[in-house]
Design a protein around this nucleic acid. Structure first.
Length: 214
DNA sequence: CCGACGATTCCCT
DNA sequence: GGGAATCGTCGGA
């Protein structure tokens, strides 16, 4: 069970900070996804920071487009993108506004609604696999582009598909960081992937795979 | 308009 | 370890 104190909601000011402060602070927090069949709750265990137009690894690197517009908006909103022709990935936009920075949610532990998550994640058997990787996480939480731009802190919380709770923030001594998965080029130099050490839900690291020449 | 490829996952060897 | 799946997005022509 989750202690009552861990179920207090975060507020927008949490996200209105530099992305490198927010990213590690998200570890251990609880993201709630409200579906029509009930809630799915995820304890975040692995994230990556993307630091705006100056970050070569970021979707915001070449400026604002229709796809990444939400990143350029106010903090506390959800940025969802579609990739590889079949997957979605989910980010939380950080502040200050117009810095176009966001945190990619890479992995977590499903603590409520595992049955709902399993319905979405047909290939997964073990609990630790359900949200082990950013596309798996989005699939388990039934997140797609229709949720792009969702506000974590709307005036009517009942209408929101998401909520985020304080959870049990990870002890900084257990937080590790390293290069971002799948990010190549200049962006690979930044150790902006953060995870909770020894957590079984953290996804395996994969270096960026350069396309073969032909 | 067209070609290349991606903040990935899954299955096969 | 390697390759396929699969399509929206973006940059260049």
């Amino acid at each position: 069970m989750i202690a009552a104190s861990q179920r207090a909601p975060l507020d927008r000011s949490f996200f209105d900070r530099p992305v490198l402060d927010v990213a590690p602070d998200l570890l251990g927090r609880i993201l709630v996804r409200h579906t029509e069949h009930g809630p799915i709750e995820l304890r975040l265990t692995e994230v990556e920071a993307y630091a705006g137009p100056a970050d070569p690894g970021s979707h915001a690197y070449r400026g604002r487009t229709d796809r990444n517009a939400v990143m350029f908006g106010p903090p506390g909103h959800v940025y969802v993108y579609f990739t590889y022709g079949m997957w979605h990935c989910m980010n939380l936009v950080c502040g200050p506004e117009d810095t176009a920075s966001a945190v990619l949610l890479r992995a977590g532990e499903i603590i409520t609604g595992a049955d709902l998550a399993r319905k979405r994640r047909t290939t997964s058997r073990r609990l630790a696999d359900l949200a082990q990787g950013p596309a798996r996480l989005a699939t388990a939480l039934d997140v797609d582009r229709s949720l792009d731009g969702s506000d974590l802190f709307p005036s009517d919380p009942a209408a929101s598909p998401f909520r985020i709770l304080t959870g049990a923030p990870a002890d900084p001594a257990t937080v590790r960081n390293g290069p971002r998965t799948g990010v190549g080029g200049e962006g690979a130099a930044h150790p902006w992937r953060f995870w909770i050490e020894h957590d079984p839900t953290v996804s395996p690291y994969r270096a960026h795979a350069p396309k073969k020449r032909r």
